[in-house]
Design a protein around this nucleic acid. Structure first.
Lengths: 114, 114
DNA sequence: CTGTATCCGATGGGATACTG
DNA sequence: CAGTATCCCATCGGATACAG
């Protein structure tokens, strides 16, 4: 019974202003350094990037590889386990694309951005 | 290009403390009155129920049917368009259930609720 | 380079009272 | 019955400075 009410769990893990774009970048590029991610997401601050990555890492969706060199080098990637999320992300993306069109139908072009 | 980065859209529509449980109730029961929904979700306030329903209605996921009687009667249901979300909700639910088990594997029983 | 700490304003959601 | 209005607090996220 309670086992059938857990899509909030998925939602909670994906919630966070920058998690979607971080996931998208990592899915597209495979592996990225901290600074690469930061450069590829112009408006994100180090604090938020670090925080959101840490949460994704806790949930084993993102893998963090540290190279103990000077200067430090840290690489992020989608973990093997995290790959299992990609069909859902893809489905959500497809629905989102269609939905923006649907909103335009309903309310017209000018309000579709709401 | 930009058309491929819209799963945030889906996320935004589903975000809201009570939307998942509202959707679940409506999916299970088909059609429910405002007061039925409120009774079936013990801790929700009228303000939040009304607000979250209004947002779901704006996105054409929930249908609102008003019966102009005294006392007023309003029934809510998942719209036809909204049905197209259910495979995603189901997929998210399944992933969520599996993920809670995964967290238990990773961190043990006592931390799986985090 | 890869972060953490602090402060602070914006937003989300709860309690309560009021209304058509 | 089915909401809305108001106030208030907790959490989230941005700016900036500091650190290993």
């Amino acid at each position: 019974m309670t086992a059938y009410c857990k899509f909030e769990t998925t939602l909670e893990i994906l919630i966070g202003k920058w998690k979607p774009v971080i996931l998208l970048r990592l899915l597209a590029s495979g592996t990225m350094r901290f600074s690469e991610l930061q450069r590829s997401i112009p408006d994100i601050t180090k604090k938020m990037l670090s925080q959101q990555l840490k949460e994704l890492e806790y949930h084993d969706i993102v893998h963090r590889e540290v190279y103990p060199s000077i200067p430090p080098k840290v690489e992020y990637s989608i973990s093997e386990y995290g790959q299992r999320l990609t069909p859902i992300l893809q489905a959500m993306n497809d629905w989102g694309v269609g939905h923006l069109a649907h909103l335009t139908e309903l309310y017209g072009e000018e309000r579709s951005a709401e």
